[in-house]
Structures are given as C-alpha cells and as structure tokens.
C-alpha cells in the first residue's frame, strides 16, 4: 500500500462521527461610519497610513513623501516609475527598490487590508522587498468584512494572493511591535478611484 493510501485508510477507519458543515452568515453590521473611515482606522492599528484625498499629481506627491527615493517600481498606469515589474530579471532583484506603487482590486474595512495577487504584481516580490509600499485603492472596491473579502474571485484564481494590512513588523523581541521586519518599512494606501478608462476587474463582487 502506498504511503498515501496508508494514511487515508487510517483516517477513514478513525473518523469521528459525522457532523454537519454549518452555514456562515455574512455578519454585516449597521454603522454610521463609511467603509473608508473604518478602513483607515483599522489600517492605522497596524501602523499603515491612509491618504483619504487622492493627490492631484501622484508623481509630485511621491517626490514629496519619499524625497530620498531613487528607484520607483510602478505597476500602475497612473505613474511612471523608474522601473516596471516586467524589467526584473529575477525575483530577488526588487531588493533595491525604494518605493513600489500598485493598485489593489479589493480593500477590507474591518481589518484595513488590501489584496494583491500576481495579476497586479507580475513579480510578487515587489510588495515585500521594496522599502516602501504605496497602494492605490478605489473606495468603490471596499468591502465591509473578511467574509465579504473571501468572495473575491482572486481567492479562487490567483496563484498568490496576499492580504496586506500594515508594514512588516515583529513583536518577537519584548512583545512590542517594531518596524520593519523582513518586509516593507511603510505601507501607505491612497484612496484613489480608478481612471475612467480602466475597467472594473472581471467578476469583482460589488
């Protein structure tokens, strides 16, 4: 018998009595706050920043916010960086990127999370290896909670899907969270509607 069969047989022989799979409600909550407010407050808990008013000139905002940044990786049409994801020869290469700018297809108000997948990134490491991460989020792409979030088609389709909820941190020394650990030093989310020309991502649930 193969190891696989061996294990599965042992499990089949030992199953506890069958139980039903419960239904999971959506747990939506009535609130006076907008999803954007809830989102930015949740993101702040893990030291992520929200820019509520989208800057008229993204390029200028970037220069002012990150004056020392030399290498900018842009994965969005709104901004011309110094490098695009397609230009990286291997996935360790984005280590020298100062700022990565990417658009998320989904924001989660409950947790202040933004979703990224290989579709937005091309090279997944641009969101972890860069020093700073800037994410554009269309407020229309916000959902209330994690239950809603998992209805997004990316979780069925993507090879890599990450919910990012703050800059990389660690509380492993002395229990207090410090930044950065191995990932980005800062995370800034700009609430910025998609350009009219850009179609809403296929199958997005709204």
């Amino acid at each position: 018998m193969s190891v696989r069969e061996d294990i599965l047989t042992a499990i089949r022989e030992h199953h506890p009595p069958p139980r039903e799979l419960p239904e999971v409600p959506d747990f939506h909550r009535a609130t006076d706050n907008s999803l954007s407010d809830l989102f930015s407050r949740a993101l702040a808990r893990l030291d992520g920043k929200t820019v509520a008013e989208p800057p008229t000139d993204l390029q200028m905002w970037l220069t002012e916010t990150f004056p020392d940044a030399g290498r900018i990786c842009s994965a969005v049409p709104e901004l011309e960086g110094t490098v695009t994801p397609a230009e990286f020869s291997d996935w360790a290469a984005p280590a020298d990127v100062d700022v990565t700018v990417v658009r998320t297809p989904l924001g989660v108000a409950e947790t202040g999370s933004v979703l990224v997948t290989e579709k937005e990134l091309e090279v997944n490491t641009i969101v972890v290896l860069a020093q700073h991460l800037v994410v554009l989020l269309d407020p229309a792409d916000l959902v209330e909670n994690i239950h809603d979030a998992y209805h997004h088609p990316s979780f069925q389709q993507a090879a890599y899907a990450a919910l990012l909820s703050g800059p990389s941190g660690s509380a492993d020394i002395g229990g207090k969270t410090v930044h950065p650990a191995q990932g980005v030093t800062t995370l800034t989310v700009i609430l910025s509607p998609r350009p009219a020309s850009e179609a809403i991502p296929e199958g997005a649930t709204r």
Binding site: R45, G112, Y160, L163, S165
Partner: peptide, 24 residues
C-alpha cells in the same frame, strides 16, 4: 477573524498569504 484576535489582540496580521500554485 478569530486567529489573530486570539493570538495577539490584533484583528489580522500584516500578511495573510495564500499560495495556490507555483510562482512563474
């Protein structure tokens, strides 16, 4: 929703990552 709240009192961790297929 339960895991990080139970572990550290935060609502979620900074990275909740789903690896479904090999990278390119």
């Amino acid at each position: 929703r339960l895991l990080t709240r139970s572990a550290t009192g935060e609502r979620i961790t900074q990275y909740t990552s789903h690896f479904a297929a090999p990278r390119m």
